[in-house]
């Protein structure tokens, strides 16, 4: 039996929103420690890894590890009916052929419940090693969202380069070139406004802007985003969820042959 109660159900709704433009069918893996997701987009260019610790939940019981196979467009439709302050309860039997979702609101006294049929989803899992990256940048997630949105008018590809100078986003297209440079900035009192750049060696990689924009759907989950890069490796774009988990996106670079 699996049973989990999340006082701030909105966190789960935001997690669904953060991946639903990348993947259609997804397995949510439940274990005694956490809920987790690993999935790729249909072109296998991007990988999403989500983790939400059992400590995020007010109540968490998982007798036996199981995978909940969900169709995200359907899940998203159900979450549209969840109120902002609702508590969410998830329940599934060990057979995992259906998922019960409940949205409760003490103030209004409403309880909405849904039963969702689950699917058996065959998905390739990748072994993602825990690597030390050459560059690690922490910046406000809203700034990152604005930059990758704005650069779309210039071209399809974004060159991200981390040097002594700072972190530079560049896009080139028919109308010309745009560059946005972020310098290290720790002047603000609010830590979430800081830009910190930790660079062991300069790195420059090219990425599809379309995907970078998909990833910014996770912006409501976290005030900061962490970018990690090493030469010739997929970039990691991490949105920490308080101390309770994360949504991480990995994006394969475009490489010169």
């Amino acid at each position: 039996m699996f049973e989990a109660r999340l006082a701030n159900g909105n966190i789960f709704k935001m997690i669904v929103e953060s991946i639903r433009e990348l993947v259609v069918d997804v397995n949510i893996d439940c274990s005694t420690e956490e809920l987790s997701i690993q999935c790729m987009d249909s072109a296998h260019v991007a990988l999403v890894s989500m983790s939400l610790s059992q400590s995020a939940f007010d109540h968490f019981r998982c007798d036996r590890s199981l995978s909940l196979g969900l169709n995200l467009p359907n899940v998203s439709k159900i979450f549209k009916m969840m109120g902002r302050d609702d508590t969410m309860v998830l329940k599934a039997e060990d057979s995992a052929d259906k998922l019960m979702l409940m949205f409760e609101n003490d103030k209004s006294g409403t309880i909405a419940d849904f039963e969702l049929k689950l699917m058996a989803i065959e998905a390739e899992q990748l072994g993602v090693p825990d690597t030390a990256y050459k560059c690690s940048i922490s910046m406000p997630s809203s700034e990152f969202q604005r930059i990758v949105r704005d650069l779309q008018v210039m071209g399809d590809t974004c060159k991200i380069s981390c040097t002594k100078e700072g972190l530079k986003f560049s896009a080139t297209g028919q109308i010309g070139t745009g560059n946005i440079l972020m310098r290290q900035n720790v002047a603000s009192e609010k830590e979430e406004d800081h830009v910190t750049i930790d660079m062991e060696e300069p790195v420059e990689l090219n990425f599809a802007l379309r995907y970078l924009n998909f990833f910014t759907k996770a912006t409501p989950l976290s005030p900061t985003v962490i970018l990690k890069m090493s030469p010739g490796l997929p970039i990691v774009i991490e949105y920490p969820i308080e101390q309770l988990g994360h949504v991480k996106y990995y994006l394969a670079p475009k490489m010169e042959e």
Binding site: M40, A43, H44, V45, A46, L47, E124, Q125, L126, G127, V128, P129, T157, N206, A208, L233, P234, Y250, A252, P253, K254, M255, E256, E257
Partner: peptide, 14 residues
């Protein structure tokens, strides 16, 4: 134009 690589070129399928 640089071609797009895929995730499985970097990480092993389990």
């Amino acid at each position: 134009k640089a071609p797009q690589t895929r995730m499985d070129a970097f990480f092993a399928v389990q």
